[in-house]
Amino acid sequence: MVKGMFKAVASNARHTLVLAVAAATLAGGCATNDTGAAEVWDPIETPNRFIFSINRAVDIIAIRPMAVVYRDWMPKPAQRGVHNVLENLGEPVTAINEVVQGDPSRAATTLARFVVNSTIGLAGLFDVASSIGLSKTKEDFGKTVGYYAGVEPENGGPYLVLPLAGPSNARDAAGLMADYAVDPFRILTYALNVDQLLYSGTRYGATVLDTRVRTMYALDDLEKNSVDYYAALRSAYTQQRADLIRQKREKTDSRGELDRRDNVALVR
């Protein structure tokens, strides 16, 4: 595994900086656990479960009911518009990540999308770019780290449950902070003395509602049909993030995943 890491360093010499960050983030994860999907590494399960139960209470009392109202009462075109605006605000961060991932041409497409949708698409309300052939991608720094790290993408360091944000791990939580730090909108609104509370409150409040509506079906189903919701969500989150990273690594399909499962998971 360490060898694999060095190989990755050697073959991607120009991305040394990113790798250093990746290595730092994953150092803990590398040393002890690289069994990937067999079982998610969760060394602080007790505090995680504690935050998980608080999150769940907040969700049951406040977030889910609000999301249901939003889903059922807000006209569908308006919901789509809100979603598009939020996605448009995220395009610069995606473009930055695509540059770091070594794909400047894809970053250029993302920037073109941003320019088209911000102008012709009326500040992002309409996704005009998709209809003229500029396809959409979504990247974050967690994926970027996972892309470069020489470990199985199931290994994102210790599993974490973040207050409000929910399932994550060391890799994705660090990614979240990095994305926040480089976000041009955050920097710009700060520089222009826009009321930060108002700006972030509106943006992240809307993001929470939009995301909760989009995940409602899957999460309700997982909760209802699992015997240990915490463990089921931990597994599903890890698998899905790993799948996204693997898609970046081998632009084919997830056969690698199955290869490993025959070798590792079923043997245990």
């Binding site: 997982l222 463990a231 089921a232 597994s235 899905q240």
Partner: peptide
């Protein structure tokens, strides 16, 4: 069956294992 990268068997496996351990 894998839906959006999430395997049914693997999720059940984590789910069941954790329940059994608990």
């Amino acid at each position: 069956v894998k839906i959006e990268g999430v395997s049914m068997v693997m999720t059940r496996r984590s789910d069941f294992n954790s329940y059994i351990q608990g």
